[in-house]
Design a protein around this nucleic acid. Sequence first.
DNA 1: TCAATTCCTTTCATTAATCAAGTGAAAACG
DNA 2: CGTTTTCACTTGATTAATGAAAGGAATTGA
Lengths: 138, 138
Amino acid sequence: MDSTDQLILRELSRNGRMTMKELGEKVHLTGQATAARVLKLEEAGIIDGYTIRVSKEKLGYIVHAFVTAIMHEPRHQKFLDELDRRQDTVSRYFKTSGEGCYLIECHFPTHQELDDFLNDISEFASYKVTIAIQQYGQ
Amino acid sequence: MDSTDQLILRELSRNGRMTMKELGEKVHLTGQATAARVLKLEEAGIIDGYTIRVSKEKLGYIVHAFVTAIMHEPRHQKFLDELDRRQDTVSRYFKTSGEGCYLIECHFPTHQELDDFLNDISEFASYKVTIAIQQYGQ
DNA sequence: TCAATTCCTTTCATTAATCAAGTGAAAACG
DNA sequence: CGTTTTCACTTGATTAATGAAAGGAATTGA
């Protein structure tokens, strides 16, 4: 991990579909040398994969919420199954220490759907909801 | 946005560097037809860009924290500047309604660095810290 | 019924990725 | 100190993907 590798990570973060030739020009290497470095970063697990940023807003999911769940019971599996079943709304979730047991990042088309979600999980957990009004970074 | 477009989004989320030919095979179209659909999704802003997943852990940032900031004063600019200055640790932050004013997702090499960060922001805000122990999804 | 439009395929030229050598500099070792 | 190994890179040849153009089928609307 030298400064060239850091630059590669920064450029690929900005455009992960850049050609190796183009990326090579940015870091002053040939496409072949650049591809070799990228392969190493992949093999080291530093580059964990390539994705797209999907605009949830453009897809009509305009409610962006973070739900902190505080579990009622020690058995969490049915709760986690519910989260996995809702892949359309639940984009990521974390087991946490601190306030709650889980922090769930989710997107909904309307507040009604958020309400439905909260009703569903209230079987397993109490919750606190934080609504994201504006996102910065990334 | 038909089912083919949805499949395209799913496949590109899994591998954003897939060739159009390969993606076309997944969605039963030629590479050219697939590329045309992808271009439309880009122009509609649904595909907001291409990125890499960078493993913060592999880079030595093993502490993953969500910091809820409750501002002392109405002027937030100096606080936001501080967050922007810390691009190495602050990956995203949100203006929120709910518990706090801002929710900050950040990564640190050690708890010491987290402590330094908290000391820095305590000038502007009180805070609550939630540590992510395990991530699911994405 | 007849354009106009959309969405796709096919074909071909262009461009990029990949593979195989080959070079040079630094590191490892007798 | 000299030799060899290793590493990161470049160059050149081959293979694959992309982009542009042309054309065909299905859909829409006057």
